[in-house]
Amino acid sequence: MNRQLLLVGLMVLGVALLAGISSLLIWSPAVLASETSDLARSALDPGVLRWGYFSAALVTGLGSLAAAYAVGRVGTAAVGALAEKPELFGRVIILVGLAEGIAIYGLIVSILILNRLN
Results as ranks from 00 to 15, higher is better:
residue 40 A to I: 04
residue 116 R to K: 14
residue 6 L to P: 00
residue 44 L to M: 12
residue 80 G to Y: 04
residue 51 W to G: 00
residue 117 L to W: 12
residue 67 A to H: 02
residue 79 V to C: 10
residue 77 A to I: 03
residue 32 L to M: 08
residue 93 I to A: 15
residue 68 A to H: 01
residue 81 A to T: 12
residue 118 N to H: 11
residue 118 N to S: 13
residue 27 W to G: 06
residue 1 M to L: 13
residue 5 L to E: 11
residue 5 L to F: 12
residue 92 V to Y: 04
residue 60 T to D: 06
residue 17 L to A: 14
residue 106 G to C: 13
residue 43 A to F: 11
residue 50 R to T: 09
residue 56 A to R: 01
residue 96 V to F: 06
residue 73 R to P: 00
residue 47 G to C: 01
residue 44 L to S: 05
residue 11 M to C: 08
residue 62 L to D: 05
residue 12 V to R: 00
residue 80 G to H: 07
residue 112 L to W: 09
residue 21 I to V: 12
residue 23 S to W: 08
residue 118 N to K: 13
residue 19 A to I: 06
residue 46 P to D: 03
residue 79 V to H: 05
residue 24 L to H: 09
residue 5 L to P: 00
residue 86 P to C: 13
residue 51 W to Q: 09
residue 6 L to H: 02
residue 113 I to Y: 13
residue 54 F to I: 01
residue 79 V to N: 10
residue 12 V to T: 06
residue 113 I to W: 12
residue 90 G to M: 14
residue 38 D to N: 10
residue 6 L to G: 01
residue 20 G to E: 04
residue 102 I to N: 12
residue 49 L to P: 01
residue 99 A to W: 10
residue 118 N to E: 06
residue 36 T to Y: 03
residue 14 G to D: 03
residue 101 G to E: 09
residue 13 L to F: 08
residue 102 I to G: 09
residue 117 L to F: 12
residue 41 R to S: 06
residue 89 F to M: 14
residue 29 P to R: 08
residue 106 G to P: 05
residue 10 L to Q: 03
residue 12 V to L: 13
residue 42 S to K: 09
residue 56 A to P: 02
residue 28 S to K: 07
residue 36 T to S: 13
residue 22 S to K: 00
residue 3 R to V: 15
residue 44 L to W: 10
residue 30 A to G: 09
residue 43 A to N: 14
residue 45 D to Y: 03
residue 106 G to W: 08
residue 43 A to L: 11
residue 8 V to E: 06
residue 13 L to W: 01
residue 10 L to C: 07
residue 30 A to W: 12
residue 17 L to K: 02
residue 115 N to D: 14
residue 98 L to G: 12
residue 108 I to G: 06
residue 105 Y to W: 01
residue 113 I to E: 11
residue 104 I to W: 10
residue 101 G to P: 06
residue 2 N to H: 15
residue 50 R to M: 04
residue 73 R to F: 04
residue 96 V to A: 14
residue 113 I to G: 07
residue 95 L to T: 00
residue 34 S to G: 11
residue 53 Y to V: 03
residue 107 L to N: 08
residue 50 R to Y: 02
residue 73 R to V: 15
residue 114 L to C: 07
residue 39 L to T: 05
residue 64 S to T: 13
residue 32 L to H: 13
residue 27 W to C: 10
residue 110 S to R: 08
residue 24 L to K: 11
residue 49 L to M: 13
residue 33 A to G: 02
residue 46 P to T: 10
residue 9 G to S: 08
residue 97 G to E: 09
residue 44 L to G: 02
residue 38 D to P: 00
residue 70 A to T: 04
residue 35 E to L: 11
residue 75 G to F: 05
residue 18 L to S: 15
residue 82 L to V: 03
residue 88 L to P: 05
residue 79 V to K: 15
residue 37 S to V: 12
residue 112 L to N: 08
residue 100 E to S: 15
residue 84 E to C: 06
residue 111 I to G: 14
residue 50 R to Q: 04
residue 69 Y to D: 00
residue 1 M to A: 14
residue 7 L to M: 12
residue 70 A to Y: 02
residue 107 L to F: 15
residue 14 G to P: 01
residue 111 I to M: 14
residue 66 A to H: 00
residue 17 L to W: 02
residue 87 E to H: 15
